[in-house]
């Protein structure tokens, strides 16, 4: 469960205030808003990559506002994937585990498992350069999921993909949602994407965040 209470974020002239929402365990939330509405800002604040002026962010009843990004146990998938370009696909997937000092055998086991789950086993030995957009996003997802994060934060993960790849990624995300029961905050500007994936919809409009039910 993750909850934002009266969150205020200021950055230069940009200001977002009074952000309140709650994501229950296992819920998949899509956060929508126009370009420049501040949806990425909210996501980065939750991940600890952007300072918060006031308010609280609770992860299972604990205020994580002051914790370092590393201590929050939140999986982060940025828009362009931002894969580690100097590492192989397998090294990307296992990075969080290496930092957590998992032993080698467990790391290899987990990386194999993730690769199978995401359908990228054939890529493990490849360098990151030359991967297609869909492949990159799969690796980025796997890298974020590897250490069993409590929440997954996705920043427009599908916006740069072509239609066919997008369709495959919807199916993959739905599969992850059903099989892993992940709690996720997914940013998007596409209503159709939101309808396909979301349990609940959050919309930022004119600096105000409100909840919408997904019409089925």
């Amino acid at each position: 469960m993750i909850e934002c209470k009266e969150l205020n974020i200021e950055q230069g002239a940009f200001r977002l205030s009074g952000i309140n929402f709650r994501i229950e365990e296992g819920e998949y939330i899509v956060l929508m808003g126009q370009t420049g509405s501040g949806k990425t800002t909210v996501l980065e604040a939750i991940c600890g990559l952007r300072p918060v002026k006031s308010g609280s962010i609770y992860l299972d009843e604990k205020d994580i506002k002051k914790l370092k990004p590393a201590e929050r146990e939140i999986g982060y998938v940025p828009q362009d994937g931002a894969l580690f370009t100097t590492m192989s696909v397998a090294e990307n997937l296992g990075f969080g585990l290496k930092i957590r000092k998992w032993n080698k055998a467990d790391q290899t086991e987990r990386v194999k498992e993730l690769a199978e789950l995401l359908g990228i086993s054939y890529l493990l030995k490849r360098k990151v350069a030359g991967l297609s957009g869909g492949e990159q996003q799969r690796v980025a997802l796997g890298r974020a999921l590897a250490f069993y994060p409590r929440v997954l934060c996705l920043d427009e993960p599908l916006s740069a993909l072509d239609e066919k790849t997008k369709e495959e990624m919807y199916q993959l995300l739905q599969k992850l949602k059903n099989e892993l029961n992940i709690t996720a905050l997914h940013i998007s500007h596409s209503k159709s994407e939101a309808v396909k994936l979301a349990d609940k919809l959050l919309v930022i409009e004119n600096g105000i965040l409100r909840t919408e039910q997904v019409k089925l």
Partner: peptide, 8 residues
């Protein structure tokens, strides 16, 4: 930033 979120 991703590295930070992964525990670095």
């Amino acid at each position: 930033q991703v590295a930070l979120s992964l525990g670095c």
